[in-house]
Simulated assay, not measured.
Amino acid sequence: MAMLGERTLPRITRTAGGYVKGRWVDGEESETTFRASIQPAKKDDYDQLQALAEGRRVESAIRIYTRTELVVAGDTAQNGDLVIHRGDRYLVTAGGDWNVGMRGVDHYRYLAVRQKPTAEEGS
């Protein structure tokens, strides 16, 4: 059974990163697809994300509902999965397992923050 508004989206996963000469370097990126429903973040989500964002200002966030387990930033050396939504990259920064043992209802819910393009990617 599909989730409401579910569609196929690009997902970027990264191998483990590490420090090189004192600077963090992300791992290699690879792109796959997964099925998810994207919803706008709520005010409470922004309040939670501001507390998690280590002093960074959160300008745009989304909720992701999926049956696919994603990597959350800070949980591993991979620095979190990136989800492409409407041409923007969103970093998965929080999430939880909403699997309650009911077939067709089990899913994961994540919060993701839009990433600004780096100088290398352009504006």
Rank of each mutant, 00 (worst) to 15 (best):
S123F: 06
G95L: 07
L49H: 03
K116P: 12
E31Q: 15
G27E: 06
D97L: 06
Y110R: 00
Y108L: 03
R109Y: 01
G27H: 11
L91Q: 09
G22N: 04
Q78S: 13
D47H: 06
L52A: 11
K21A: 15
R103C: 08
R11W: 09
I62F: 01
Y46R: 00
Y110I: 00
E121G: 08
Q115V: 09
T8W: 07
D47N: 14
D26G: 11
A53W: 02
M102G: 07
E69V: 06
R14Q: 11
M3L: 15
A94Q: 08
Y108W: 13
S30L: 07
R14W: 11
T33E: 14
Y46S: 03
T118D: 13
R86P: 02
V20T: 08
A119M: 13
Q48I: 12
A112E: 00
G55Q: 06
T13W: 09
W24M: 09
Y46F: 15
R7D: 11
S30K: 10
E31F: 04
R86T: 06
Y46G: 01
Y110F: 12
A16C: 12
G17K: 03
Q48Y: 10
Q115N: 08
S60Y: 05
G122S: 09
Y108G: 01
E6G: 00
T93K: 06
M102L: 13
I64E: 00
V113G: 02
I38W: 05
G17H: 05
V100H: 11
A73L: 08
I12K: 03
T118G: 15
T33F: 07
A41T: 00
V72I: 15
V71S: 09
A51V: 05
G122F: 10
G27F: 09
V113W: 03
L111P: 03
L111H: 05
T66R: 02
V25K: 08
T76L: 04
V113R: 01
S60F: 03
G80M: 01
I62M: 06
T76S: 15
P40M: 02
G5N: 15
A94V: 01
V83C: 04
R86V: 04
M1D: 13
A73W: 05
K21N: 15
E69A: 13
S30Q: 13
R63P: 00
K116C: 07
Y65H: 13
K43W: 10
G80N: 02
T33M: 11
A2V: 11
G104V: 02
H85V: 12
L49P: 00
A73N: 13
R23T: 13
L49C: 04
G95I: 04
L70E: 05
T33S: 13
